[in-house]
Simulated scan of single mutants.
Amino acid sequence: MTNANLAALSEAGVAVWLDDLSRELVQTGRLASLVAEYSVAGVTSNPTIFATALKKGDRYEDQVRELATAGVDIDEAVFQITTRDVREACDVLRPIHDKTGGKGDGRVSLEVDPRLARDTAATIESARVLWSAVDRENLYIKIPATVEGLPAITAAISEGISVNVTLIFSLDRYRAVMNAFLTGLEQAREKGIDLAPIASVASFFVSRVDTAIDPQLDKIGTDEAKALRGKAALANARLAFQAYEEVFSSPRWQVLAEAGAQVQRPLWASTGVKDPAYPDTLYVSELVTDGVVNTMPGSTMEAFADHGTVTGDTIKGSYAEAEQVMDGLERLGISYTKVVEDLETEAVDKFEKSWTELGDSVRDELERAAALAGGSSHE
């Protein structure tokens, strides 16, 4: 039976995606159940998710044993494990992709090695390799929205690779991401590449903005500061949607749309609530409008399924209020620029550490498999 709350969210124009992936989720049929019952139309993954899946699941043992026997190195083992998971998930979601005519749903996201976040050329090459290895048209390659990532986004799009741009925190960077996307489409068109199959989402991170700003407001402690708690993240996201509306109604975009291009949809990421004082569905119910994606961790999705509400569009018409929130923060001496710069740096570092953790987990599993097989430990 379809969950009414998530169905209402989907009917309001919000694509419901799951921010989780594991072999167990795919092979037990749980992902297919979420598609049928929870209106799930896409999946996002990241290094932290893969590291957790490998630690908890026992469905990787056969492949790890094969990789250990083959004597592959750690990076190759990580590559083989993650691409297989994503490929299988793409197959589960392929009917959605086909039903919607390839318009961006029914897709699974796979991230380039986050250690390459500051290396444009290496990111481009990694995107090509991953796109080819998974070999599914309903794949998104995740590329971080670092300064170095922007030309990589353009290059990937220009080659017909669908991209999920991740780690966007600031409005200026989001505008740069949309420009990189449009430039990539323009280059693809010049090459004679069909624009219609090229899909993209721009992952704008939400909750972490409040996590960074709320402690500063608490330290200030005035009534004005208290009144702004829990408002910065939503204001930032709503102003991002305003920027999206401006760009995708421009003459530049109209030329590409007439050539068959799809819009780059805003995707609300980091939508799990970190502060227990806030409603656990805050970053879902307050970011509803037609044409966006919300990728939720399992706990947030379950919460919305249980008691989430859709009260109509909660973005359009909110821009003036959002501007007032941002102005209020500046008046209190909180630097938006510093907050978003710090958040990007922290996010890149976090994913690099998670990638290292994933590699460590794979190494441990390879060594264990080799030991069980009576071979020498894996180096």
Rank of each mutant, 00 (worst) to 15 (best):
residue 88 E to Y: 00
residue 46 N to R: 07
residue 333 G to Y: 04
residue 249 S to G: 15
residue 25 L to C: 06
residue 48 T to C: 04
residue 353 K to R: 11
residue 80 Q to N: 10
residue 148 E to R: 10
residue 20 D to F: 07
residue 198 I to T: 06
residue 114 P to E: 09
residue 76 E to C: 12
residue 321 E to G: 13
residue 205 F to Y: 03
residue 166 T to G: 04
residue 186 E to V: 10
residue 221 G to Q: 12
residue 183 T to K: 11
residue 91 D to S: 15
residue 286 E to L: 07
residue 19 D to W: 02
residue 217 L to S: 01
residue 318 S to Q: 15
residue 29 G to T: 05
residue 75 D to F: 02
residue 23 R to N: 13
residue 190 E to D: 13
residue 351 F to A: 01
residue 244 Y to S: 00
residue 324 Q to S: 15
residue 371 A to F: 09
residue 44 T to F: 01
residue 335 S to A: 11
residue 263 V to R: 11
residue 82 T to D: 08
residue 329 L to R: 04
residue 141 I to Q: 00
residue 375 G to E: 12
residue 182 L to W: 02
residue 8 A to E: 08
residue 213 I to E: 03
residue 254 Q to D: 15
residue 175 R to E: 15
residue 119 D to W: 06
residue 309 T to V: 15
residue 150 L to T: 10
residue 359 G to E: 11
residue 357 E to W: 02
residue 169 F to N: 04
residue 192 G to I: 11
residue 231 K to M: 05
residue 144 P to L: 02
residue 95 P to L: 12
residue 281 T to H: 00
residue 5 N to P: 00
residue 369 A to H: 10
residue 237 A to N: 02
residue 333 G to K: 11
residue 52 T to W: 03
residue 168 I to H: 01
residue 168 I to T: 07
residue 127 A to T: 10
residue 367 E to Y: 06
residue 92 V to N: 06
residue 315 I to D: 00
residue 303 A to P: 09
residue 172 D to G: 08
residue 374 G to Q: 08
residue 29 G to W: 02
